[in-house]
Design a protein around this nucleic acid. Structure first.
Lengths: 188, 188
DNA sequence: GACAGTCTGTACCGATCGGTACAATCTCCG
DNA sequence: CGGAGATTGTACCGATCGGTACAGACTGTC
């Protein structure tokens, strides 16, 4: 009863790491079993929908984490400087300063994009909306706000790609540090 | 004889599209056979090393294209403005204005990264070197040049990710358009 | 027209894929 | 203790994976 919920919340982060490391198609049931210590019996007991349900729930939890820790604070702030700083700090923490990869980005680039197109689209769209509206609220015109918001999102994704490609997490750290002045600049 | 070479040069772009669309692990031999119109017999005749050799040669050809069309021009120029403009134009053409994805980036994010770590690293490293040295040659200090160069590379990768995630290639176009002023700005 | 080398289709291999079935076990509550 | 439901391990399924073997069909040369 209570334990089922506990198990599931402990399970999803483990699943997330498997999907992050191997992608959707690369995350085989034996890898998942190995990472979680669970056999197929248990896995299909918790996730009758199989791999697809596992990935969908993982994406759901990621979405929820960003909603609470990043999107909502952006929406409820009227002072862009500290809000942007908080976002950058949260992003740096979530991606472990460039050591971790973005599962949503991994899926967006892979063949499983179509299967999760709605979740992938929603994740970035809501982030973009929250951020660009914050910037617009602070005075910059809507077009510039949208452009800067997209710049921030794509910088984060690109920095994760490049950091992993060059095996140099510092790239991610520097890219994040560069972001606040670009987002908060006076000139449009 | 002459035909073998011709066949191979026609084959590699087809293989590249399969790897782009499905990733390394997702590119099954039956998909490859379907895309090329070749059976396993022919495929293994041309690539005795199997999938790994196919992907390695595809990466090699991509590397060669960038070397000729992007890296070399950057190295041989002393005027950053037209050189950067030419790079942006070439990148826009190569990635079909955001409709195409970067295979090197796809592999960097996937599980096959380790298998092709050398090629992936070399591709971005040589691009970064060529671009940052051009900027340094034009007067900006080495640290700024390196930072701006990384910014350009990661912007391109991130724009491809975001464009695909949101199914909006215009994101890529706008990100590219934003790049020259950032690379060529006076202030460091 | 015969030979050599290139190319191709097909049958086949063991391994592993995602998924199912189900009996055995565990856990909790009365 | 006993029974209900949650949980698990194992055997099994058909399909497909990457790869191999090889006989036959092309292709060009003498």
């Amino acid at each position: 009863m209570a334990r089922e919920v506990a198990d599931r919340t402990e399970l999803l982060p483990l699943l997330a790491e498997v999907f992050r490391a191997h992608g959707y198609e690369g995350a085989t049931l034996s890898l998942i079993g190995e990472a979680t210590g669970l056999g197929k019996g248990s896995l299909y007991h918790f996730f009758p929908g199989g791999k697809q349900q596992m990935a969908a729930e993982v994406l759901g939890e990621i979405d929820n984490w960003f909603e609470v820790n990043i999107f909502a604070p952006l929406r409820s702030s009227d002072d862009p400087a500290p809000a942007v700083a908080a976002m950058i700090a949260a992003v740096d923490g979530y991606f472990r300063s460039g050591h971790r990869v973005c599962l949503v980005g991994v899926i967006a680039l892979g063949a499983s994009r179509d299967m999760f197109a709605v979740q992938v689209h929603g994740y970035f769209k809501r982030w973009d909306d929250a951020l660009s509206r914050l910037l617009a609220r602070s005075g910059v015109n809507a077009r510039t706000a949208r452009q800067r918001s997209a710049d921030a999102l794509l910088t984060i994704q690109g920095a994760l790609v490049l950091a992993r490609a060059l095996d140099d997490p510092a790239i991610f750290r520097r890219a994040l540090a560069d972001l606040p002045p670009r987002l908060l600049a006076k000139a449009g």
